[in-house]
Amino acid sequence: MSFWPYFGLKRGIKTTSWPSAKEQSPGITPGRPRSASNASSNATTQLCPTGALHPVETGVSVDLTHCIHCQRCRQGPHALPWEDDVAWTVNAGTALSPLGYRFRRSLHVRYIDAGACGACINEARLLDAPVYNLHRLGIFITASPRDADVLLVAGPITNAMCTAVRKAYSAMPHPKRVVGMGVCAINGGIFGENFACVGGLQKIVPVDLWIPGCPPPPLAILHGLLAVVGRTQCTTAEELP
């Protein structure tokens, strides 16, 4: 005799009310650096091992597509301010508009791991945890790209996975959108472009949106998926002070 439904009901509602309300539980995001009008811009810039920080006339700008959350610029005398938001999605530069009204509450996603380290995968797996529950937003994960509207790709796109990503993209019906998740998908991240990694999803399929982060937390991923249907807004990749 199984009482699992009872155990489930006993726990009550755990789901966040984001995006209709702000979600500020501590630890829900690792946070990320923001640009600042910093006097010692050169010293701050040197803290970054991946070149995400650039000195500009007004201070330090942050290139979010290169930040891998190494936390080197978080504390110390030259630290940048870090902010706990989740609206991380940036436009990848294609002119494709958000998917139409019909997809707003029925968006089917095919996830492909193209070399992700496990952190991105774990965050993506948590999307269907009760706390985040992507289904309440009308987003569903499908087993086949045949049924998918969105291709969600994580990892630095290893050479061995190129065929799979390409095939999945061509197997999808129109209209289709591609979302690259994590800094690795954008430019290879710490792995960069090398003999084993293509380093950048847009080199093999056209990409519509990026979700930067290393890894992007579940709410940032949800933000990106909602941006596909125009329910949230993208920001720019380069943050100027």
Binding site: G115, A160, M161, G192, F195, A196, C197
Partner: peptide, 11 residues
């Protein structure tokens, strides 16, 4: 396996 080989040791 090694569909996800990123060549970490080499790079």
């Amino acid at each position: 396996l090694f569909y996800k080989y990123r060549g970490v040791e080499k790079i």
